[in-house]
Simulated assay, not measured.
Amino acid sequence: MSTCRGRGGQAGSRIPPESVMSQSPALHQRLGIALPILQAPMAGAQGSALAIAVARAGGLGALPCAMLSPEAMAEEFAAFRAATPAPLNVNFFCHVPPEPDPAAQARWHAALAPFFAEFGLDIDAVPEGPGRRPFDRETCDALEPLRPEVVSFHFGLPEAALLERVKAWGATVLASATTVAEAEWLEARGADAVIVQGLEAGGHRGMFLDGEVTTQVGTFALLPQVREAIGLPLIAAGGIADARGVAAARALGADGVQVGTALLCCPEATISAIHRRALQSEAARHTALTNLYSGRPARGIVTRLMRELGPMAEVAPAFPLATAAIAPLRTAAEASGSGDFSPLWAGQNASRCREVSAAEVIESLAAGL
């Protein structure tokens, strides 16, 4: 067992996890929710409607804000507040914006040129733009008057001064870790709880200390290792789609679970009909990590783009610069009913992704608590 340094433990001590956790309220009590079940924030796949439905069912609803303007964020927040007094998790990215690299962008455009020609599109007309902004001072300024109860981060944590501001209004800070080292890093820098994201999880990997995908392991291998290493509350994410997965995560040391893919086919989600069909088809059995849609590894159903360029391609520019050139291809293909160029985000276990209400999904998961 590695040393435990969280929640009062001293370096070199060997406090069992149960003793560490007993020093603080249960996770769901700390978050102000009835059930220790969190909805994964899924940018581009949901808005306030899904967060509201999960909150009303007793879980923690989430708003993905990395792609929202301050005005849009405030509107979604207001819609949530008008519907329920429940706590809300707002989620942001903490990536470092890349420096412009015209040569890398030219290589990317060259790789995509045959696809553009197929649809009669002009690749030289693709606008440049990052598409996603990290959590910065301007974002914090817009968020502070809203005072959400929970703020979560992907790709690490913001700079210390911004994190202090978030915690100053009483927000609980969650952050994703994909390795033991990342979990220890988050604990040392002020996270209140860690989302342990296994390799099974759909969407973007939260990896931030190392870009090597071979460091990534499954939820049920990673969870007990992190439980031994740190003393913070842990939230298991990746591959959890039913009560059995919840029970397994709890048995391995999770204080709560975070679920995304199982909610994607709910009527409250906003994914396309193409994405819904793919999730409920045999195609959902084959997912892979890919950097083609954004520039960072993310898990989705294998598409034509992933097959022809390779799911992890060196030619893809740094996150989030890959996004702009993919957008016209996606629009053109989807107009003809094809998801060949769409980011069909999904975890490895889409078996419970059904067209039922979010409340029914949360109720079924709660049976495993």
Rank of each mutant, 00 (worst) to 15 (best):
Q216K: 02
I235Y: 04
T303E: 01
T172M: 09
V151D: 00
S19R: 12
A79M: 09
L305Q: 02
A11S: 14
A57V: 07
L162R: 12
L143N: 06
E187T: 08
F135Q: 04
T3G: 13
D122Y: 09
P130E: 15
I15Y: 00
F77I: 12
P134E: 12
E138V: 13
P127G: 04
H154F: 14
F153Y: 11
A125V: 02
L112Q: 00
H109M: 12
L209Y: 12
E268W: 14
A359S: 12
G339F: 03
A229I: 03
S176D: 09
L252F: 03
A43F: 10
A171T: 04
F80T: 03
G120A: 06
P102E: 14
M67R: 15
A346R: 12
G120Y: 04
E187H: 09
W169M: 07
A175C: 08
V180C: 03
P224G: 01
I123Y: 06
A160K: 14
G337Q: 00
R299E: 11
L27Y: 06
G203H: 11
L234Y: 03
P145W: 08
A188N: 13
D242G: 08
V217T: 13
P311T: 05
V315W: 07
G253M: 09
P320R: 13
S338F: 00
F92I: 08
G190H: 10
L31Q: 05
P267A: 12
E308H: 08
A350I: 10
A175N: 08
D242Q: 04
T331D: 14
R354F: 15
Q225N: 01
A57F: 05
L31N: 02
A188P: 02
L157E: 06
A142G: 10
T172Q: 09
A335E: 10
F153L: 05
G347I: 00
R189E: 08
V361F: 03
